[in-house]
Simulated scan of single mutants.
Amino acid sequence: MNRFKGWLRAFWPEPMAVGRGEQLLSCVGALLGLLISGWIARQALGNAGLWLVAPMGACAVLLFAVPSSPLAQPWSVFGGNLIAALVGVACAQWLGHGLVAAGIAVAAAMVAMFVLRCLHPPGGAIALTAVLGGEEVAQLGYAFALYPVSLNSLGLLTIALLFNNAFRRRYPHRAMAPDSPRKTRDLPPRDRLGFTAADLDEVLQARGELLDIAREDLADILRQTEERAYRRRFGEVRCADIMSRDVLCLHPETSRAEAWARMQAHRLTAMPVVNQARQLQGMLYLHDLLRTGEAGQVREAMQTGVLTCAPQWPTIRLVQRLSSGEVHKVPVLDEDGVLLGIVTQTDLVAALYRRSLETGPAAPSTEA
Rank of each mutant, 00 (worst) to 15 (best):
E258C: 04
T304P: 06
A310H: 04
R256L: 13
L333R: 03
A295D: 07
M302D: 08
V349I: 14
G282L: 12
H287T: 07
Q279F: 01
D347H: 03
A257Y: 01
I342Y: 07
G337N: 08
A257T: 08
L286C: 07
T292K: 15
A301C: 09
T344G: 08
Q281K: 07
M271L: 14
T359M: 13
W313E: 05
Q320K: 14
R262A: 03
G337K: 09
H266C: 08
Q320A: 12
T344R: 13
S324F: 08
V338N: 02
A277I: 11
L352R: 15
T269D: 06
P314A: 06
L289G: 11
A350Y: 10
A350P: 06
R256K: 06
A295P: 00
P314N: 10
A259P: 03
P331C: 05
C309T: 05
I342E: 11
L286P: 00
E335R: 08
V332Y: 04
R256A: 12
A270T: 10
P314W: 15
T254I: 02
G305Q: 15
V274S: 03
M271W: 04
E253C: 09
G296M: 12
T308K: 00
E294K: 13
Y285F: 13
W313Q: 02
L284Q: 08
L268R: 11
D336H: 07
G282V: 10
A351S: 12
G337R: 11
Q320I: 02
L352H: 12
T254K: 02
E335L: 07
L280V: 05
A257P: 00
R321D: 03
R291M: 09
V349H: 06
T359I: 13
L318P: 10
E294I: 14
E358V: 10
G293H: 05
Q279G: 01
L286R: 12
A350F: 08
R299N: 05
H266F: 09
L280M: 09
A310R: 02
E253P: 06
P311G: 00
V330A: 01
R355H: 01
E294Y: 02
G337V: 08
G296L: 13
A270G: 10
G282Q: 10
K329D: 05
G341C: 06
E258Y: 04
Q303I: 14
L318Y: 09
S356E: 11
V330T: 04
H328K: 13
K329W: 02
E294V: 15
G325S: 08
R267Y: 03
R355A: 02
Q264S: 14
R299M: 06
M263T: 04
Q312K: 01
L286Y: 08
P331K: 03
L307C: 14
L333G: 04
R321W: 09
V349G: 01
V273K: 12
D336W: 04
V343S: 00
T346M: 11
D336K: 03
M263N: 05
T269Q: 13
P331D: 00
E335S: 11
L340Q: 03
L318H: 07
T346V: 11
S323P: 05
A350V: 05
Q281D: 11
L340P: 02
H328R: 14
V319Q: 14
M263R: 13
R278A: 04
V273C: 09
T292I: 11
L284E: 05
L348D: 05
A257C: 03
G325P: 07
I316Y: 14
G293C: 02
Y285G: 05
